[in-house]
Amino acid sequence: MHFKFWGVRGSIPAPGPKTVHYGGNTTCIEVRGENNELLILDGGTGIFPLGQSLVPEFPLKVHIFITHTHWDHIQGLPMFLPIFVPGNEVTIHGAADPITQRDIGEVLARQMEYAYFPVREAELNASMSYLNIQEGQSVQVGGVNVRSMLLNHPVLNFGYRLECEGKVFVFTGDHEWPYNIYNKDDPDYPDYQQMVDEQRIRVVEFFRNADVLVIDTAYTDAEYPSRKGWGHGTFASSIEAAREAGVKRVFLTHHEPTRSDADLEAAFDEARKSHDVGRERDPQFELAREGVMVEI
């Protein structure tokens, strides 16, 4: 199995000279199974250049797994070239919207309505299908098994665990570790804490022994207190969890759009120092970078 980052930026694209090294496109990861099965995780703006690169493979079959439907994870989908070309088969997996009770196909079709986009979903030439993901359900794409787990974010967000010939790749999508919403002296505090602890154990289990973990690490430890509840992880939370789960290699992603390449490296350096990264038996920690391909 191997994968390539096509977008590592969070929230909104951040093009320009200051982000040219790590890249300005929003979330998109291409994953290939041992038989060259094509899976794509999220359809941020990175999916546009990815779509261009796929032309030589037409007609193709692709499975796109959407972690959640916030803009930065779907905004490239209407410009994904394969959906316009007859003969291509595109299957999109994602969470239904439980509030409006719309399934993933309806949610995504809305961003192609008249006011937002010139081509309606119904006019796409590829053969399109949509499948609602349920937690714990596993989907087989050729030799790649994809399992999902609901992770905490301000909308339903699925993390995906991909397994192929004994290799494991995990992507969180956007994820903030649940925290106790009560104060220590509230009667509900201990009860809630127990549920938070249980959930943490389940998530760490989901990451367990992954060869590669790509994890939402939007904030520095200093930024976090003013952004608590926004649905993202921190350098501290990602480093701790990867260690706990016995992961081998970790890519920190969902970089802040305001962070320049230099700022990003400075933040990472500081986190490495303060968390003693590189100590014995530590996972290998790296910043996710657009264009980088990794063999697992």
């Binding site: 439980p98 905490n152 974010h153 339903l156 649940p178 919403i181 549920m195």
Partner: peptide
């Protein structure tokens, strides 16, 4: 409370 831990406060709020 149990629901908030699992599906997040914003989903519960919008519901």
């Amino acid at each position: 409370n149990h629901g908030v831990v699992y599906v997040g406060i914003n989903t519960i709020k919008n519901l």
